[in-house]
Design a protein around this nucleic acid. Sequence first.
DNA 1: AGCATTGTTTCACA
DNA 2: TTGTGAAACAATGC
Length: 275
Amino acid sequence: MPELVEVEQARVVIADHALGREIAAVDDADSYVCRPHAPGEIAEALVGRTLVSAHRRGTAMWAATSDGGPDLGLHLGMAGRILVDTADGGRAVGPGTLLSAPAVPANPAWDRFTIHFADGGTLRLRDKRRLGRVVLDPDVSALGPDALEITAAEFRERVGRGTAPLKARLMDQSVIAGVGNLLADEVLWQAVQPPLRPAGDLDDAELDELRRVLRSCTRRATRRGGVHTGEVIGERRADGACPRCGAPMARGVVGGRTTWWCAAEQAWRVPAYSG
DNA sequence: AGCATTGTTTCACA
DNA sequence: TTGTGAAACAATGC
C-alpha cells in the first residue's frame, strides 16, 4: 500500500484527527514492529502526553509529542495503514475510507501498535505483513529530500548521476525520498523514460521533465486515492498493453523490484561498443 | 508447492 | 571508500 502518496494520506489523518488527544495507554507489545524498544518503553514515553504535530519525509512519518516528549516514528512498511477512531466514537478514518482505495483489512490481529486515547478512541497501525515499524525519535538523516519538496536544481544534481538504472536511482531513498516501485513505474512511463537507462545519461532538460512528471503523477495519485490508480499500473501484467501505443508491456527486475514498461516506447538497449 | 508482494536493511563484491 | 545488486525480513494471497 504505502508509498509517499499513501503515507501523506495517513499523515493528514493523524493531523486532522489524532492531535491534542490525551494518551491514556499504549499497546507496544509487538517487539518486532517496535524494535529495538522493549515492550512498555514506547508506552512509558507516551502516556500522559498528546501528539502535537504530524510530519513526513518520503515514506518516513513521525508525530511530535507534548511537553518535550520524544517523536513517535510510524513507518507503514509494505502493507501498513493508520486507523484513527474519532473522539465522538465515530467510525475509523484512514486512507481506506477513500472510495478508490483498497478496503482496510479487518483482522484485529493485524493491529501491531495501538494508542488508546483518554476519550476512548484509538490510533492503530494495522499491518497485515508486519513490516511496519514504530520507533521513538526515528533517524531520518539518511533520507534524501522529499520527492515533493526537492528543487529542480537538487533533482538534477542528485538523480542525474551514477551508472545505476534510472529507476533504481529514483527509488534510492538516500537520493530522493518517497518514490516506491509503483510510482517509479508510473512516472517513467508517463515521462517515456526507459527504467534501465543509466541515470547519469539524462541531460538537464530530461531531468527537469522527469521531475515535472513526478510531481504531476504524485498529485494525481493523491487526488484519486493512491498510487495504485496510476494509468499504467493496471497494465502491470503479462497481457498488459501500453495505454498510449498499445504495445505489450515488458517485464523485468530493476533495482531489485519487478518492473513493467512499454516494450516499444521505453525500450533500452546498451549502446554498441564503438571504441 | 512455489512465487510474488506499493519497503527497508544488511551483506557481499567490485 | 563508494556504488551497486542480491537476499533477508514477516506474512499473506494467488
